[in-house]
Amino acid sequence: MGAIAANPVLQRAIRVPPAYLVFAVLLITLWVTKPQLMNVNVMGIFIRQVAPLGILVLGQLLVMRVRSIDLSGAGVLLVVNYMISSGIMGDVPAIAYIAMALSVGLAVGLVNGYLVGRRRVSAVIATLAVTVILTGIIQFLASGKPPGDMPGYFNDIYNTKIWIVPTPVAFWLLLTVLMSLFLSRFVFGRFIAAIGENPTASHFSGVPVERTVIASHILASVIASVAALVQSASVAVGSIRLGLEMPIDAVAATILGGVIFGRGDGGVWGPFFGVMCFALLFVVMTSFGVPDPGKQIARGLIILLAAIFYGLSSSEK
């Protein structure tokens, strides 16, 4: 281990997010084995599938930079999905749905932020419990049955394209650029970087640590509600299945992208490629006929290996 610490080349190499390498490997695998899939239209559809995940990751990377985690995205997703597809809001314009989604995100974020930042509850437990509560309530309201159809115009927007780029992907890209600018050009980004590196030193430097952690959680949940809108648009029928897959995939993609509990080597684009890896991974696995459980194993392995990778490289310090 000491050899890694001593060698500057290796030290730099260990800070490159694994996402880029994994992405390249998956791309080559696909190119060699299924060349017929390598065209703009097909790839567009694949990437469009992960746009909600990609948006969710933007919030996840924020909280993981400040050494927290957010698994409440699943709950937000479910609530927004249900509110839109069940028709309990009546016949309202799209803007009302958007306002509803953002307020759900804001409310969940406030709860998470209070619990994690102020009450110092373990973030995993707190956000997981929030998801369990929201899921239970929604399933109860829906009496366990799928609620109903999504309004048509949602799906219509989802299926449009801007030039050759599917609209959801363009939207995801736009948000990623915005987040990248927010983190690199605003004081908030400096606070995030400082807290991730060392909360104690940040506190002594005058950074409002508690407030920044709370704000990150609020932002993450609001972003989750945006992801929920995109996700709702991608499906025709509402769903009430408890699905931790999305937030867990978001955690995995973020770690793959080089952002983990304080360390932000991958910035915003590392996790972006982490999500792209997932897009390709699902294609590769599906095309090789890997069943669902196999995907679950892959999911677990990716998180574990990425965490081990960072665990080892941070113990070098």
């Binding site: 050009r185 605003f186 004081v187 908030f188 400096r190 606070f191 400082a194 940040s202 430097s205 005058g206 950074v207 409002p208 407030r211 920044t212 704000a215």
Partner: peptide, 12 residues
């Protein structure tokens, strides 16, 4: 960081 932390988080 000393200068930044004297300012509001949402400023550039």
């Amino acid at each position: 960081l000393g200068i930044h932390s004297s300012r509001s988080a949402i400023l550039p």
